[in-house]
């Protein structure tokens, strides 16, 4: 919590503006997304209605191909809906220009990917710093060092991705997202490439961010992971089939098994 407060205190005006308002609320109304694959039209999402409040820790659960990554991409302004609306921080992303969507990604949402997507030519420090630079934070160096500290990688900051383990690389990716100072964290299968032990460590970091006031959305096919969330949205074939807290209430990461 203290770290998060420190971020806000040292953040730029843009950070303050996005965090201070109803900026982290996510509203999806009758959202439908269809793709054309060859001559076949594929419906990835259909009539999705979803509302996520600020500082929520949400897991979107479902099997491969159910549309959960598409949903995350919609919220992250990487994709646009075929119909319906996606509103993040009050901005209708379906009607926003590509520049406005880019600004949304720059100042409101941050991504963590299954395959990390670190820049191989940059050191851990520089990869994290990229997040702050992309968001045009004037205190990029401070944010970078703090984010590295949060994920416990300060001693490894001068290492390149290929010199880090998978878990360390994913922690760098999380630090990159944190350094941006953006209030929404979107994680797409963040433990997919990792072993159980490392995966749990990553989930702990995510959980800490949610507890610190960040909105965290985690996409996974692993039902066990959904146990640590405040809310679990289950998708199947493009439809929400369940939405609510995990059965038995949120578990601690130390209780997870897979």
């Amino acid at each position: 919590m203290a770290d998060r407060v420190a971020f806000d205190e040292t953040g730029s005006e843009a950070v303050d503006a996005s965090i201070g308002h109803a900026g982290t609320r996510i509203d999806l109304d009758e959202l439908t997304k269809r793709y054309q694959v060859g001559e076949v039209e594929v419906t990835a999402l259909e009539n999705i209605n979803l509302h996520v409040d600020e500082a929520a820790f949400v897991v979107i659960l479902g099997p491969s191909g159910c549309g959960k990554t598409t949903l995350l991409n919609m919220i992250g302004a990487l994709d646009t809906p075929t119909s319906g609306s996606v509103k993040v921080a009050g901005i209708d992303l379906g009607r926003a220009s590509s520049g406005e969507r880019a600004e949304m990604r720059r100042n409101t949402v941050s991504f963590i990917f299954q395959t990390f997507n670190l820049f191989p030519a940059l050191t851990a420090y520089e990869n994290v710093r990229f997040g702050a630079d992309a968001a045009r934070r004037s205190d990029a160096d401070d944010r970078t060092r703090m984010a590295l500290d949060q994920v416990g990688l300060s001693p490894r900051q001068d290492h390149f991705p290929h010199q880090l383990s998978g878990g360390e690389q994913q922690r760098v990716a999380i630090a990159r997202a944190l350094a941006s100072g953006n209030p929404i964290l979107l994680a797409d299968e963040p433990t997919g490439e990792l072993d159980f032990r490392t995966g749990v460590q990553i989930l702990q970091v995510l959980e800490e961010q949610a507890r610190a006031g960040m909105t965290v959305l985690v996409v996974t096919h692993n039902r066990e992971i959904s146990r640590i969330a405040d809310r679990v949205i289950e998708l199947s074939s493009g439809h929400i089939v369940a939405d609510g807290p995990p059965a038995g209430g949120p578990a601690r990461t130390s209780d997870l098994q897979w």
């Binding site: 720059r106 991504f111 820049f119 191989p120 968001a135 941006s180």
Partner: peptide, 11 residues
Amino acid sequence: EHATMRAFGLP
């Protein structure tokens, strides 16, 4: 890498 940059909102 370019896709990642775009995901972070770089013009």
